[in-house]
Design a protein around this nucleic acid. Structure first.
Length: 916
RNA sequence: GCGGGCGUGGUGGAAUGGUAGACACAUGGCACUUAAAAUGCCUGGGCCGAAAGGCCGUGCCGGUUCGAGUCCGGCCGCCCGCACCA
């Protein structure tokens, strides 16, 4: 008897699809287009399960939309620039380019085995000169439109390796290779003017109604619009020509509770003071030893130093406030200077307590104020001013009593109102301006690295910064570089670096910085519409294919990648490379969860006595590959044993009984099973898709990745689950192959064999219901529920005693519904059961609406909210008649005990609740 | 630290504010088989009960509602992001 043989089936159908060019996308004005895009992968060398899940989901959408008659564009490429290639080059002495292209070849072969409906003719890698050359053209266009500029910015500097470090290369303030303390260093770098678009990027989020709310919220918070007041604290005596310190505050209403003025260590005034005061210089230098990441700054211990300067309160010239430099004040936000009101800001309060600075309440809560009146106490007992270490920070919409207001005393109002009043007052009195401030900073794109897109400008002593001529693009990366010395190889490659100035022809130097890899991924979706164009895009193609109708990827890209792409689409539209209608490039977004796997960890602790007699403890953690472990149930508890240990003790790990015996003899093992952990090589819990495809076939891997867990949530890879998926697919195949011989052969009784519908009433109803539910599941990105319905349908077909032709018709519907998920098996079943042509070209089945409605409904009857009985009635029975029947129900009668119900709630078609 | 999300049986999960646990895994039982594999069928939250049935139950505490896994407030735990990882 033949068996389900995925290896043969999958290879055959992949060839047929290729030969027929089923997935090649061509513009067709007569058909609606649909552009499905999954975030392209970094070519690390191997596909992992996260990829399989991501691309399986995209493939469901692509194949489903194609079946619905859309002209589908479903491309794939490689996000191929970046640090790992340079790390590999350093470690293995190979060129980043050859490492990358080898990885791409490897991964592409793995991709192809999955049978995804991709148009490979559009493939490109961002490290292809054809791609990054067009990116350089974009850069020059942006430069011309004023969307790029240069300014100084800080980087992490490793003083030993003499190189700039990425944030991830900084561990606890030290360089990951050298271990040296990292310093902050200022360099002149290129920036995109994304902050000019802050308001627009924020407002346009409202229109992205097919994006997850969480992503829109995260982006809105990231852009961080806040209304506040900008004003100056006049210096008691001007220092270094500075007459006043400009601050920005979102809480001007707390001005009368001001305690001190704080400066960022990177503030110009702080720098000026540094030059003359060694103590300040030492303090600032110390602050600069933290990494540049916001996280590092926020987590660092809050520290400050009094500069000795004094400034005047804007509303009371006699009130002098001290000026401090504090490490938690960011130069990038607002003016790099703040005033602190400790009573109503926890961080300020902590700081004030630490350095013994004054704390004055500005407002109290209504309740506390009233309680204070009652107890005859002048101020509430538990306020920061009276010593509490908890700042009073009510929601801005809550009414409070102002005890130190900027304008009138004792007013009850919300923080919001008070802020607006203060801004109004400040503007009228001329000491401050109300402004809209954004947290979003300009996007620094310069990277001091080799493996990235060269920034196409030349530095000339006479002409300054000169853009490279477009006809000279691409500015290609030189091939002959080495990574045996620290620093950027482009810097020391004189032949590449020394070029004539494009403007005057005098000897000049190329820019040696390359672009952030986020630039590469900010417009690849546009390039896919015309990957061979001699300009960044071909407008006719872009106009036809844009926007991306469905974008799919991980939540980890919720902010940066997606925000940068939104900026790029706008910038490209300004330069004419995209239509204005593509300013929001992704109509719908879906963020899928991770694939996780158990970790098997053993921890051994050993005590050693050193020579001098002191004992030290060594804790040794080891992780074990799934294949090195066997499992056994011990009293309902799943236990893991190392195979090697069993073998050592002369037990056979492949014999279930011996595993039990072993556990009985040796008791519990040291191996901990940690579930649902993110896959990582160091934890040895990575499942290799190649092995799974070899063992079970691509359809099984795809089916399992789509079943069980909701797509937006993490899914745990388990062998048992994969085996179950495989068993199910084998069952479908077996049902089809057993049924096939009993069907009239094509040509025998006409070509009628295939199209015949399901005539068995029960099976026909279920088929219609399944079509409806599976379609709903796919539309709503609930593939796991679609899969559940398909399981149920399969079981029903198997149990059905309807004639073979009916069951075959039902199976053909099953195949069509499974086609987006398990395309190879679906084609095979379709062909076995007399389907004509490629299933990949068949339209999506439609449910007969008449079969979807039932004549009767069963209503659960609740008594006081608990289900006690049920009632089956005609679907459209009027409410009064339902009520009558409910009251006649035995359980209801019993509960009422002769009385009348307090309330009777009838939700037609849903439920009945009797309140007694 | 800040921002966002998630939390339901032994496990993954299902459930427009309306019968909590669909579907699947694991477990246990049965059938087929010389045996095994494969396959099929049944069971499947906890407690009490012979059963009928009852009580409890969606991380914890409280609230809104005829009715809360779902909505609101407060906690706890885990995950993601924090601008030079991609």
């Amino acid at each position: 008897m033949a068996r389900y043989d995925p290896a043969a089936i999958e290879a055959r159908w992949q060839q047929e699809w290729d030969a027929a060019e089923v997935f090649k996308a061509r513009p067709d004005p007569d058909r609606p287009k649909y552009y499905v895009l999954e975030m392209f992968p970094y070519p690390s060398g191997n596909l992992h399960m996260g990829h399989v899940r991501n691309y399986a989901m995209g493939d469901v959408v692509a194949r489903y939309k194609a079946a619905q008659g859309f002209n589908v564009l479903h491309p794939m490429g490689w996000d191929a620039f970046g640090l790992p290639a340079e790390n590999a080059a350093m470690e293995r002495k190979i060129h980043p380019g050859s490492w990358t292209y080898d990885n791409i070849a490897n991964m592409k072969a793995q991709f192809r085995s999955l049978g995804l409906s991709l148009d490979w003719s559009r493939e490109f890698a961002t490290c292809d000169p054809e791609y990054y050359g067009q990116q350089q053209a974009l850069f020059l266009d942006f430069l011309e439109k004023g969307l790029v500029y240069r300014k100084a910015a800080v980087v992490n500097w490793d003083p030993v390796d003499m190189t700039v470090l990425a944030n991830e290369q900084v561990e606890d303030g030290r360089g990951w290779r050298s271990g040296a303390l990292v310093e902050r260093r200022e360099l002149t770098q290129w920036f995109f003017r994304i902050s000019d678009f802050s308001q627009e990027l924020l407002e346009a989020l409202d229109g992205l109604d097919r994006w997850p709310d969480k992503v829109r919220t995260m982006q809105a918070n990231w852009i961080g619009q806040s209304r506040g007041l900008r004003f100056g604290f006049a210096c008691e005596t001007p220092v270094h020509g500075v007459e006043a310190i400009e601050v920005f505050t979102t809480r001007p209403d707390t001005l009368m509770g001001a305690s001190f003025v704080g400066l960022s260590p990177d503030h110009p005034l702080a720098k000026a003071l540094e030059a003359e005061n060694p103590a300040i210089a030492a303090f600032c230098a110390d602050c600069r030893r933290t990494g540049t990441s916001e996280e590092a700054l926020e987590k660092a211990e809050k520290r400050g130093m009094d500069t000795g300067l004094r400034v005047r309160h804007p509303l009371d010239p006699d009130w002098l406030l001290p000026v401090w430099i504090a490490n938690f004040i960011l130069m990038d936000y607002g003016t790099g200077a703040i005033f602190a009101c400790p009573a109503h800001d926890q961080r300020d309060l902590d700081f004030a307590r630490k350095y013994d600075l004054p704390v004055k309440d500005v407002f109290h809560s209504l309740g506390v104020e009233r309680k204070a009146e009652k107890t005859n106490s002048p101020t509430p007992l538990d306020s920061p001013e009276l010593g509490s270490d908890v700042a009073f920070v009510p929601p801005r919409t809550e009414k409070v009593v102002y005890v130190r207001p900027v304008a009138q005393a004792g007013h009850e109002m919300t923080g919001e109102q008070a802020v607006e009043n203060t801004i109004y007052l400040a503007e009228r009195q001329g000491w401050g301006t109300g402004v809209m401030q954004y947290r979003l900073r300009d996007w620094g794109l310069s990277r001091q690295r080799y493996w990235g897109c060269p920034i196409p400008v030349v530095h000339c002593d006479a002409c300054g910064v000169v853009p490279e001529k477009k006809e000279n693009l691409p500015v290609k990366l030189p091939e002959d570089v080495s990574f045996d010395r620290p620093g950027n190889p482009l810097d020391r490659h004189h032949a590449w670096r020394n070029v004539p100035c494009p403007a005057c022809g005098a000897p000049a130097r190329r820019e040696t910085d390359t672009m952030d890899t986020f630039v590469d991924s900010s417009w690849y979706y546009a390039r896919f519409t015309s990957p061979g164009a001699a300009t960044p895009t071909d407008r006719a193609e872009a106009d036809y294919w844009m926007n991306v109708d469905q974008y799919i990827g991980g939540v980890e890209h919720a902010i940066l990648h997606l925000l940068y792409s939104r900026f790029f689409a706008r910038a490209m539209a300004i330069c004419g490379h995209l239509p204005d209608s593509a300013a929001e490039p992704f109509d719908a977004l879906f963020t899928q969860g991770m694939v996780t796997h158990e970790i098997y960890r053993s921890v051994s602790q050993k005590l050693f006595a050193e020579n001098d007699g002191t004992e030290i403890q060594i804790v040794h953690e080891a992780y074990h590959l799934p294949k090195d472990v066997v499992f056994c149930d011990v009293g309902g508890q799943r236990e893991a044993v190392l195979r090697s240990e069993m073998v050592e003790d002369k037990f056979d790990p492949d014999d279930e009984q011996q595993v039990k015996d072993y556990l009985n003899v040796f008791g519990r093992t040291e191996i901990q099973i940690i579930p649902s952990a993110k896959m990582s090589k160091s934890k040895k819990n990575v499942v290799d898709p190649v092995g799974i495809v070899d063992r079970f076939g691509a359809d099984t891997a795809r089916w399992f990745m789509l079943s069980d867990s909701p797509p937006e949530r993490d899914v745990e890879w388990t062998d048992a689950g994969a085996e179950a998926a495989h068993k199910h697919l084998a069952r479908v195949w077996r049902m089809a192959s057993e049924l096939a011989p009993s069907l009239p052969q094509a040509g025998e009784s006409g070509a009628e064999a295939a199209p015949a519908g399901v005539s068995d009433p029960a099976l026909a109803r279920l088929a219609a219901r399944t079509i409806h539910d599976v379609t709903q599941g796919i539309e709503g990105f609930a593939f796991n529920t679609s899969v559940a319905k398909l399981y149920a349908f399969t079981a029903a077909i198997q149990k059905s005693d309807a004639p073979a032709t009916d069951r075959a018709a039902a199976l053909r519907i099953l195949a069509r519904l499974m086609a987006p998920m398990t395309p190879h098996l679906a084609e095979e079943v379709w062909r076995m059961l007399g389907g004509t042509g490629l299933l990949a070209r068949q339209p999506w089945p439609e449910a007969d609406p008449a079969l979807l409605v039932d004549d009767t409904v069963t209503l659960p009857i609740q008594i006081n909210g608990k289900r006690r009985s049920e009632l089956t009635v005609a679907r459209d029975l009027p409410k009064p008649e339902i009520e009558a029947q409910v009251l006649a129900d035995a359980a209801v009668q019993k509960a009422l005990a002769g009385g009348a119900p307090k309330k009777l709630i009838v939700v037609p078609g849903r439920i009945v609740n009797v309140v007694v």
